[in-house]
């Protein structure tokens, strides 16, 4: 019987192939969150990303995790990823040191839109590690500070020790005329800042509703309440953007894990204009 078969032309699975890059340093932001600075090396040639996009970070033999890029988009050769140590991959990443090699593929997903913010006020509302995917847009805004009106950063954390980027928060406030308001869920007598949920900070700032663009990222519950607060303050939904999180395996729309209603967070998200996801936010276990 004729069993001879011809081989089809073989192409590789480009979008799923990882690229080795070097760890330059690890900075611990708090007890279980750290920022990895990566030297992108050869892979950095031609690597560009937009604020709000994410990478798939691979640990040899262990697995991959989707992590937002938290550094300045103007410096794509050296990338920061701020990572919460929770699972297998992130725990492995936490143990890696300067000179170790991990894999990167990306960048994936949508970004915080910047053009719509030109000439307008920007209100950034964040909670917990949600500040990390917003840091690139803050860098971008303050680089051309004069092109924007007020820049307000509202940030909530569990406790003063849990807050990310504390030094930078102060720097943004002092050197770049950013209105930074930070609150924590729990503080002791040494904490002179606000205590309470992040939405409570809105009462200390007056927003010019029609002239304000809002970027929101944090735990989903926090985002739900923040969106209500923005609504109460008259910010049109079309001027609000938020970034969502779901389980992801492929980041390119193949694996099905990150489906959020009719959307794939890896393709259409993670950053969405509020009107796109507003009806979905109220659907439990979507």
């Amino acid at each position: 019987m004729n069993r001879k078969t011809q081989a089809a032309e073989v192409e590789v699975l480009d979008p799923m192939t990882t690229h080795p890059v070097l760890i330059r340093k690890t900075i611990w932001e708090n007890d279980d969150t750290f920022t990895l600075t990566l030297d992108m090396g050869d892979y950095g040639q031609g690597f560009r990303f937009l604020p709000g996009q994410f990478n798939m970070v691979y640990v040899y033999g262990v697995g991959e995790a989707a992590v937002s890029i938290s550094s300045d988009p103007a410096k794509p050769a050296v990338l920061d990823h701020t990572i919460h140590r929770v699972g297998l991959v992130t725990t492995a990443l936490a143990q890696m040191k300067r000179g170790d090699v991990i894999g990167i593929r990306g960048p994936y997903g949508s970004s915080w839109p910047i053009d719509c913010a030109r000439g307008k006020d920007v209100c950034i509302a964040s909670g917990g590690i949600g500040l990390a995917p917003l840091r690139p847009i803050i860098y971008t805004l303050i680089k051309r500070r004069e092109e924007y009106g007020r820049i307000i950063v509202l940030y909530g954390g569990r406790s003063p020790l849990d807050l990310l980027y504390r030094v930078e928060l102060e720097k943004w406030a002092n050197d770049f005329n950013v209105e930074v308001l930070v609150t924590v869920d729990r503080g002791d007598s040494s904490w002179k800042g606000h205590i309470g949920v992040v939405t409570s900070l809105f009462q200390y700032i007056k927003l010019d509703a029609r002239e304000t663009i809002a970027y929101v990222c944090g735990p989903e519950v926090m985002m739900r309440y923040t969106v209500d607060e923005l609504d109460r303050r008259g910010i049109p939904q079309t001027q609000t953007y938020l970034s969502m999180e779901r389980n992801m395996k492929c980041a390119v729309g193949f694996c099905g894990h990150c489906q959020y209603g009719p959307t794939f967070i890896c393709k259409e998200g993670p950053v969405y204009p509020l009107p796109r996801v507003r009806p979905l936010l109220d659907r439990k276990e979507l």
């Binding site: 709000g52 994410f54 995790a65 989707a66 992590v67 937002s68 701020t82 990572i83 919460h84 997903g109 909670g127 917990g128 590690i129 949600g130 990390a132 995917p133 909530g156 954390g157 569990r158 849990d162 869920d185 949920v197 929101v216 990222c217 944090g218 735990p219 989903e220 519950v221 926090m222 985002m223 938020l242 970034s243 969502m244 999180e245 992801m248 967070i265 993670p270 950053v271």
Partner: peptide, 11 residues
């Protein structure tokens, strides 16, 4: 305990 829950955005 919000911040123990998910963080928004891939991370």
């Amino acid at each position: 305990d919000l911040y123990d829950a998910t963080g928004g955005a891939p991370r």
